[in-house]
Design a protein around this nucleic acid. Sequence first.
DNA 1: AATGAATGAGCATTCATTCAT
DNA 2: CATGAATGAATGCTCATTCAT
Lengths: 215, 215, 215, 215
Amino acid sequence: MANAAAKTQIRGPSRPKGQETAARVREAALKRFAASGYAAVSMREIAADVGVRPGALYNHFLTKQDILKDLMLSHMADLLEAWDSCDLGSDMDPLERFVRFHIRYHLEKADEVFISYMELRNLEPENFDVVEAERRRYEAILTEILLEGAAAGRYAVAEPKVATRAIIAMLTGIPSWYRAGGRLSKQDIEELYLELARKAVAPDAPPSLTGDRMT
Amino acid sequence: MANAAAKTQIRGPSRPKGQETAARVREAALKRFAASGYAAVSMREIAADVGVRPGALYNHFLTKQDILKDLMLSHMADLLEAWDSCDLGSDMDPLERFVRFHIRYHLEKADEVFISYMELRNLEPENFDVVEAERRRYEAILTEILLEGAAAGRYAVAEPKVATRAIIAMLTGIPSWYRAGGRLSKQDIEELYLELARKAVAPDAPPSLTGDRMT
Amino acid sequence: MANAAAKTQIRGPSRPKGQETAARVREAALKRFAASGYAAVSMREIAADVGVRPGALYNHFLTKQDILKDLMLSHMADLLEAWDSCDLGSDMDPLERFVRFHIRYHLEKADEVFISYMELRNLEPENFDVVEAERRRYEAILTEILLEGAAAGRYAVAEPKVATRAIIAMLTGIPSWYRAGGRLSKQDIEELYLELARKAVAPDAPPSLTGDRMT
Amino acid sequence: MANAAAKTQIRGPSRPKGQETAARVREAALKRFAASGYAAVSMREIAADVGVRPGALYNHFLTKQDILKDLMLSHMADLLEAWDSCDLGSDMDPLERFVRFHIRYHLEKADEVFISYMELRNLEPENFDVVEAERRRYEAILTEILLEGAAAGRYAVAEPKVATRAIIAMLTGIPSWYRAGGRLSKQDIEELYLELARKAVAPDAPPSLTGDRMT
DNA sequence: AATGAATGAGCATTCATTCAT
DNA sequence: CATGAATGAATGCTCATTCAT
């Protein structure tokens, strides 16, 4: 967790009120931004959600932009940290591991993911650059997996960077249509997308009948 | 062309001034909405781009919402119409045809495509429903292709609807990173994504012949 | 008159409403700024005085600062113009002419004068510089009078610039205590200050009894 | 020293911390008020200058208005007290003594003097009345000097109260343009203004002897 | 078809001040 | 004495929209 909220307990619970409020602001803003978009959300609405007067928000965030920045930066940090401490079996095929991790994380943190894509253009350039750098770091993880796998002959990818973007776009689209309680469970979706991704980069299927593939 | 403008073109160039203005409004709004988002764009900005006072916009569109609706509805109509009159060889494999069409169209109409994804939530429910219906019609085209291809044994897709969304998400992500003049040409990209899509739904290497693979 | 209001009649009374409103805004702002100070006056108050909603003010002035700038710049321009077209007998002693003009003008335009002194620090640097330049031009008029008079032996001034500031400060103080209907009429005040100013720069009184002054 | 701080100094340095803070608040407020005007200065700014949080100011002053009142009342008291204990030779001509005292005091306490003129209108009526009374007391000093001098034939003043205001306005204008290190030293200015003031109220050259002037 | 002026609601933000800790 | 958090009101300004001209 890279949330600013994490700093709460430094000096014990001496002044927990403000930290709680800040956390509730983050929470309310996240939902509102995801639902209506940054520009369409007013500080008044966030304040009302939190149960506080608008002016009080400024005890916790300098500006509205600062709330967005906080949400997006901590989301990216959380994502990378979550991958680093991903507890999916390390014996699993790396692509499978990445796909399963990505789907699970993106379904769990749908709002964070959504605004991190939708609100990029509302970030001030400096913050935009930070988020972009983190995004590239995340993509690099998959690119590296593809490169290594290709070198080992497990995958066939002409352009690992392109394949990276293609797979990530494919997976990231899931939360936009997945609805809990639908026909397909998260498990089902995970398996289906895993197969699509795996096949997309699979070594070329032997021209059907050529048994000479043991090279 | 499904642009509202087209609908009144019937009587020749009798009233070219207003039509022209309306077209310039559409053009300006399209660029602004794509760049900053519907909520962040003001009628004043659009008017300034067009070279007209804000009030004049209301001679051409009832409301700001109406401009968005016009752009999104006509985009969806244009997209479906473009598919219907797609001139890619009808002897081409249907999936290949769809992929090539989709990539070309989405790279050519990047702004329209972008806002049709980003601004869905800013559409009033009624307009939203129309756009959604069109989108489903478009997706149904690919789903149908996959179903038919699967029936013919050309593709293997466990869940054609899921595969549809996966492929479309994959392809639609292209304009977000493609830059003209980059290392890869549109042609290159088309081939790369075509291969990814094709393999993703390729029939599993016939189990009979894969016993010699490193299971 | 250098007031923007003067531009009103360019194209006949075709759109007189806006010009009238702008004039009323200037008038209301002038009184409020003089009474309470620029920083303490709200756009809402001005709008209420004018009988208009706050937003309407922005059809006539870009910002609150712009109103202040308009008032101060046009005051300085008016002042210099008034001096140029001053109809006090040109046969009058120049100092007398300046003193009478200054007192009359400053008693007539008390509010404008007041804010032009009090609100200098609330002007943005660029506008401040303009006003300061005008003020120096105005002071230069008196300095020139003193210099010429001294050269002609009519006045004795060791430092014309210092004497200028001294006299102007003395005269400009009048509106801060003068109240119409008081014991002294404007006429009285004019004569009294004229005498003080005249004597202040009078050639040194001959050490009382030395009749040798005909040099 | 008439500072409110002085009034609680009775028990020695028993509580130096609070006294120090109050003094620093006064100091910071003085500079800010002089630079930007009372209305344009926020308690937050003062607090920041002092190195304290806004709420802490209220341990030393009841309100923002109270700080202004404190500064202005103590300035007027200090001014009168300084005159009373003025150490300029008592054999000096009283007008000269007043002029020299006034210039020196006003150049030394430029900020205090400045706000005591500029912020009068921001004083609540009660405090305003007190300051006005003190100001009249101060002016009365010069009026008395002129009256006595006139009675003794040393000066000629038709209206001592008018002359008082004229001279004080003249002298008080100095700090608005004087800059240390300029061409004229404080000494120079003192002499120049002294001469102007002296001559302004000088007895008319005895009419009997002025027949030879260029009437 | 376009303008200039207006509206009424809303915006992000700041303010002086309070008060429990 | 100082703090951090809050309030309630206000601030300058922008907005989509209307409408007489």
